[in-house]
Computed example of a mutant assay.
Amino acid sequence: MAACREGGGRMSGIAVYAPPGGFPHGTRARYVGSKCRCDECRRANREYARARARATPNGLVDAASVRAHLTELAKQGIGRRTVAAASDVSLSAISLVRTGRKLKLRAQTAARLMAVDASAIADGALVRAVETRAALRELRRLGLSKREIARRLGSTAESPSLQLTRRRVTAKNALKVTKLLAAVRAEHAAKRAERRCGQCDESHGESRFAVLRELGAEDLADLPRTWPCLYGGAKGAALLAEDLKRIAPEAE
């Protein structure tokens, strides 16, 4: 160990407590408290400084953007209690930011508040029904009856019915409607993709690959002639090349 040069137990005029026998070598406490400058204590101080440099800055930042974010969350039905639970920030601090009485806050606190989004909403929270009503109208246009919508939303009644008369709905029900609309859209997209061609009476969708996998090399080469509605012309030739690339790894 290098020679230990210690300057006593005071630093900048402030008394520093040291346990009996002093702090152990190789610690920043001995570097600061006992002013030890041996290699081990210097190394401990350097590691501490590097760790602080790598740490996330936590200075004061302007609260304006956080206030705007909290206001937008409130419009979506996400209140301060839900925000507090999701961000681990106190209700009092959130209230001060929302009302403009707190103009600055710590960077890490701001980051936690900004990270709260619609996914943090409580199931029972009330949200505006505008988007839900629009989704239900689209479901009707896609061919679902009110009874079918109610059934697919989870109704177990013998005669399911759909009723939406309020301006607000629970977040849980709004999410159910959103998911149902996404599922029905996917179903319709799949049906359109698998619609049979009027010329060849075959599907031009994903099921065409099942046909390609059954054909030999000569038949595949002859597809522009035997399946012209799909693989005819320059565009058809390009599509055929892409389709053959797609099924090629399966044949290896």
Rank of each mutant, 00 (worst) to 15 (best):
M1A: 13
A2T: 15
R5G: 15
R5M: 15
G7A: 13
G7T: 10
G9V: 10
M11N: 14
M11V: 15
G13I: 04
A18V: 14
P19D: 06
P19K: 04
P20Q: 10
G22F: 02
F23L: 03
T27E: 11
R28E: 13
A29P: 08
R30T: 07
V32P: 03
G33L: 07
K35H: 13
C36T: 04
R37M: 13
D39S: 11
R43Q: 11
R43D: 13
Y48P: 01
T56M: 11
N58I: 11
L60Q: 12
V61G: 01
D62T: 08
A63Y: 00
A64R: 14
A64M: 10
V66M: 08
R67Q: 09
R67E: 03
R67S: 02
R67W: 00
A68G: 03
L70N: 04
E72T: 11
E72M: 05
Q76I: 03
I78T: 12
A84K: 02
A85Q: 11
A85L: 07
D88Y: 01
S90M: 04
L91A: 03
S92A: 13
S92L: 06
I94N: 02
I94Y: 00
S95V: 07
S95F: 07
L96I: 01
V97I: 15
T99R: 08
G100P: 11
L103G: 09
K104N: 09
R106S: 12
Q108L: 06
A110Q: 02
A110M: 06
I121K: 01
D123Y: 08
E131K: 08
R133C: 12
A134E: 11
A135S: 11
A135Q: 10
L136Q: 05
L142C: 06
G143Q: 01
L144V: 03
S145G: 03
E148D: 13
I149F: 00
I149E: 00
R151W: 04
R152Y: 08
G154M: 05
S155L: 03
A157V: 13
S159R: 15
P160H: 08
P160V: 09
P160T: 07
L162T: 14
Q163I: 06
T170Y: 07
A171P: 02
K172T: 10
K176A: 15
A183E: 10
A190K: 08
A190C: 01
E194K: 01
R195C: 09
R196S: 07
C197K: 00
G198A: 14
G198C: 07
G198R: 13
C200Y: 02
H204M: 09
G205C: 11
G205A: 11
R208L: 12
F209M: 12
A210N: 05
R213N: 11
E214N: 03
E214K: 09
L215G: 08
E218A: 13
L220H: 06
L223R: 04
W227F: 08
C229I: 05
L230H: 05
A234H: 08
A234E: 14
K235E: 11
K235A: 12
A238N: 05
A238Y: 02
L240G: 03
D243E: 03
L244V: 13
K245A: 14
K245T: 12
I247G: 10
A248I: 04
P249A: 06
E250S: 10
E250P: 02
A251S: 14
A251M: 15
